[in-house]
Design a protein around this nucleic acid. Structure first.
Length: 210
DNA sequence: GCGACAG
DNA sequence: ATCTTGTCGC
């Protein structure tokens, strides 16, 4: 897979993204996905499913793999998606929403990791990134405060203060969910700056690396 | 040509 | 992503 082929793949799948939330969507089980890297090209893809209400872990899976695609901004999904999909296949509990570590529509071609994973699995998804991909004004320092994330003149996501006194996170729609709902779901997963889904999948992944 | 550029 | 304990501040 060359970078050009990867870009063509994104443009081919992009039209399949939906920004609509199914009227009857009930998010009971939320999955967090993340990939950790070793010094060489070894990696560990982890997915943890939480009960959205109690935030208790109800299922998890992790797979070891090799990074066969370099990290290229804009093509991030081609590095992590294969292993993440493998990890998801090992789950026993089917998640109602995927919380990805990275961007969704806040991407140069409007098809970040969250969109890609959502389209490939068909499961609603949202991207939560730690660094922005676009312009924004800082939201108030109050949990829940938010501002638009703009790129090339269009709103591609939202900054979200998940906790007072910390930098905001950057939320963007992945697939089959609207921005308001995406932010609401992310906020209820946050006890500290990052969603519990992200924190737990992150620790599971790096533990697997040892 | 130069700077930016998720993890 | 990764290198990493204690420490400053609310």
């Amino acid at each position: 897979m060359t970078p050009d082929e990867a870009i063509a793949e994104q443009e081919r799948l992009r039209p399949l993204v939906s920004t609509r939330t199914d009227p009857g969507l009930v998010v009971r089980h939320v999955a967090g996905l993340d990939v950790s890297y070793a010094d060489d090209d070894r990696l560990a893809a982890a997915v943890v499913v939480l009960d959205a209400e109690s935030l208790e872990t109800v299922d998890s899976a992790v797979v070891s793999g090799k990074a066969d695609f370099p990290y290229v901004p804009g093509l991030f999904a081609f590095r992590e998606l294969p292993s993440l999909v493998e990890a998801m296949k090992k789950l026993t509990v089917a998640p109602d929403l995927l919380v990805c570590d990275g961007q969704g529509l806040a991407h140069p071609r409007r098809f970040g990791l969250a969109c890609h994973l959502g389209v490939v699995t068909g499961v609603p998804s949202v991207g939560v990134a730690k660094t922005p991909m676009g312009q924004f004004t800082m939201p108030d320092d109050v949990r829940g405060a938010h501002t638009d994330l703009v790129d090339d003149g269009e709103v591609v996501g939202r900054t979200l203060r998940t906790r007072e006194g910390v930098k905001p996170v950057f939320v963007s729609v992945g697939h089959r969910i609207d921005l308001d709902r995406a932010c609401a779901e992310v906020l209820r997963l946050c006890v500290t700056r990052l969603p519990e889904t992200t924190r737990r999948s992150d620790s599971l992944g790096r533990a697997q690396l040892r």
